[in-house]
Simulated assay, not measured.
Amino acid sequence: MKIDDIAKLANVSKSAVSLALNGKPGVSPETRDKILRIAQDTGYVQRSQVHAQQVYRTNRFLRLVALTNSGIVLDEFEKQPFFTELIRHIEDQCSGNGYSLLFSSIQADQLAEEVQRLSTDAEASGLILLGTNLAREQVALVSEQIEHLVVLDTCHPAVAADFVVMNNEMGGCQAARHLLELGHRRIGYVQSKSRMHNFDARRRGFDAALEEFGLALAPEHIFTIAPTVVSSQKEFVQGWASLREGLPTALFCECDYMAISVIKSAHELGIRVPDELSVIGFDDIAEAEVITPELTTIHVEKETIAALAVERLLRLTEQEGPSPRLKTLVDTSLVVRKSTKALQ
C-alpha cells in the first residue's frame, strides 16, 4: 500500500494524504480521520504516522476558517500572495504559542450548516475567521454560535465580536498623498471588478486626500480590471487607448496584483513606468519587489495582524467570564520603490 493508493481510496490529493499522515495542518478533521482510517484498515505503516497520531491526539489547536465566495476569496484563494503570507504568519504565531493550526474553507451558501458543525468542534480551542467581504449578517451568525472568535479582514462595529483589520482608508489616503507630493495632479484610479469593503474604504481615503488638494477623480480616469490577474488586461489597454488627451500621469491600484497587471499593460502600450506613468499598489506582497520596476505600494502589517489575532483568541480561550469585545485597526505605511517618480 502506497500513498498514491490511499489518495485514490480517499478521493483526495497525495499532498492531503501526506499532511494527514504527518500530523500537519491543511486538511479538515473529517478528511484527516478518513485518511488515517484507510491507512489503518489497509495496514499502511510509516514511522512518522504513529508520531503524527500521537501529536494529533495531544496537541492544542486553533482553527482558521475562510469563507469563499464569487469575488476575491475564491476556492483557491490561499494561493493568492496576500492570503498566503497572512496564513503563514498566523501559523507561525500559533506555533510560537504552542498551538497547531487547523485550516479549512467553507462555501458562503453553506455557512449556516458549517457554523453549526463548528460550534460543536471539540478539537480547536478557538476560531479565527478570515472574513474578507462578509456581510454583517454573516458575521453575526458566526459570532452568535462560536464563543471564542476573532474575525480578520473585515469589521462591522455593530456586531458583538472581536475584529482585527487593516486601516484601508489610511492606506488609500497615503497612496494619494504620495502621488500628490510628487507633483501629480492628473491621477487615475484602477478599481477591481469585484467589489469588497476593503476596496471601498481605500477609495474613500484616496478621494479624501484629493479633496484636500481641491481635486477630484475624473470619471474617464477610472479603470476597471480583474483583481487576481497579473498579466496585461485588455480592459485597461482599451480604456487607456480611448483617451485622446489629458492622460493621467499617475495611477493608484486597489491591490498589488492589479498594479503589476497595469505595469505589464503599460509596457504593451509602450508607456514607460515611472518615466511617463507612476504606478502605486496596495498590500506589499512579495511579488512587489520582483516586478520591474519594483512596485511602490502600501504596506499592510500582516505579521502584526496575525499576532494580534492569535494573542486575542488565546486570551479569550483562557479567561473566565465575559469579556469586552475589541475592534482593532492596524495602520498601514507607504513603501517607496521604483514605480513612482516626481512629475517633471
Score class of each variant (00 low, 15 high):
A161E: 05
S232Q: 14
S28K: 09
A226V: 10
V290I: 15
E211W: 04
K14M: 11
S95I: 11
L295F: 04
A140R: 13
K79E: 09
D109Y: 14
R37N: 15
L36I: 05
K234I: 03
S333Y: 03
Q145C: 09
L9Q: 14
A209N: 06
A124N: 07
L101R: 01
L343N: 07
L295S: 06
A216S: 15
R136W: 00
P29M: 07
G281N: 06
H178I: 02
K264H: 15
H299V: 04
V150G: 11
L269N: 03
I72P: 00
W240Q: 08
V190T: 02
A135I: 00
A288P: 01
I187W: 04
F61P: 02
H299W: 08
D121T: 11
V159F: 07
I35P: 07
A52H: 06
T154S: 12
Y257V: 01
I263S: 08
L277H: 06
A175P: 06
L215H: 05
E113H: 12
S48M: 11
A158N: 08
Q145E: 08
R312Q: 12
G172L: 00
L251V: 03
A161Y: 08
A250D: 05
I38Y: 04
K8T: 14
K79Y: 09
E144F: 07
E169D: 09
R88W: 08
T340H: 07
Y56Q: 14
L251Q: 03
I222C: 12
S339W: 03
F103H: 05
P227T: 09
L64E: 07
E147N: 14
Q110R: 15
R57I: 02
R57W: 04
T317F: 00
A66T: 13
Q191L: 10
V330F: 04
L316D: 00
F61V: 01
S323V: 12
Q138W: 00
D284Q: 11
R117T: 13
S333F: 00
L101Y: 02
F236H: 06
V330W: 05
V335N: 00
T328E: 07
G96L: 09
P29A: 10
H267G: 15
D153N: 15
R312K: 14
V45Y: 14
L313T: 09
N133Y: 01
R57M: 10
A241I: 01
A161R: 03
E169I: 10
R244Q: 15
T120D: 11
F82G: 10
V273G: 10
V27S: 09
V230I: 15
A140W: 01
M166E: 08
V237T: 11
E276Y: 11
R315E: 10
N168T: 03
N59L: 05
H221T: 06
I260K: 06
C253P: 04
E301I: 03
E85Y: 02
A259W: 07
K14H: 08
L180S: 02
D5H: 12
S232T: 14
K2Y: 11
T249K: 03
I3D: 02
S95N: 12
V45A: 13
L102S: 10
F83H: 05
Y257M: 13
D4C: 02
K79M: 07
W240Y: 15
D4I: 11
V50D: 12
A306E: 04
V165R: 01
L334Q: 00
